[in-house]
Design a protein around this nucleic acid. Structure first.
Lengths: 138, 138
DNA sequence: GAAAACGATACGCACCTGCGTATCATTTTT
DNA sequence: AAAAATGATACGCAGGTGCGTATCGTTTTC
């Protein structure tokens, strides 16, 4: 992974390396990457509808259904009919879901910090904000 | 894309944004992402064997065959039997391949620079080296 | 020299993914 | 009120991906 690689290749390489390092954590907790992504999206607050959640995490809306079925069966999320629009279902973490997500997230963070070890704190902050800049459309 | 997202999510988001911005460039030149990746891997020098090339770009070795078939038919690469080991095939860019890759790469770089616009040069350097650090196994 | 290993190639399998279609209940439009 | 749109759900299809298997020619091992 050289410094004169394309930025895209660098991001892909870094993302792949992180995903590989984090996979054992997710497996240990019986979660797939997408399940974790969904839980993370719900952590800050309930999603107003499944469609919105799908768009938020960029996951196919028809496949999100099965994903939520699994998470609901595991007691990590609940789907409640939206009182304002009874077609929609509000998706929310259960107390158990909140706890489990916090535990997994802490372990993921630990893995990431291990990968970041050696980079000064200032560089880490710069990295985060530069990636956020790239991710948000210009 | 928030600052307290997981690093993995940030990399994935940045990578996705870059890939989306670069897709039009590749399409305009009739190349797929993987074809471009293969060309880029060959640009610094020939690959000693197809197996090595596959591992280098982390692409399935059985599917690399069809990929190279296409690139060879397009006159961008050639496969020559390795004189030292006649089982292996040395893969090399043709002069045409070198030229085409340089053109596409220049356009890709331009797109990336547009995405990076607004970030100080120092930050851009830090980003590259931090990503390279992450990509290489700890 | 015979046997095992290896590179390139072909093929098939299982899984994942995005996308389109269809249905049903519920708004929203007209 | 009738018609059109919308959200959740089910289903299937085509394309991509990694993985295992098989064959064939060419080394490497023993």
């Amino acid at each position: 992974m050289n410094e004169d690689d394309d930025l895209g290749a660098l991001c892909a390489g870094a993302g792949r390396a992180l995903a590989e390092a984090e996979r054992p954590v997710l497996e240990r907790h019986g979660l797939t990457m997408w399940q974790y992504v969904a839980l993370s999206a719900l952590a800050p607050g309930a999603a107003p509808s499944q469609l919105v959640l799908a768009q938020q995490i960029r996951y196919d809306k028809t496949r999100l259904i099965a994903l939520l079925d699994t998470l609901e069966a595991a007691g990590l999320v609940i789907r409640e009919p939206d009182p304002a629009d009874r077609r929609a279902r509000v998706v929310r973490l259960t107390p158990e879901g909140i706890r489990r997500h916090a535990v997994v997230r802490a372990e993921i963070r630990e893995v990431e910090n291990r990968k970041l070890a050696g980079l000064p704190a200032e560089v880490q902050r710069t990295l985060r904000s530069a990636l956020a800049h790239l991710a948000n459309a210009d």
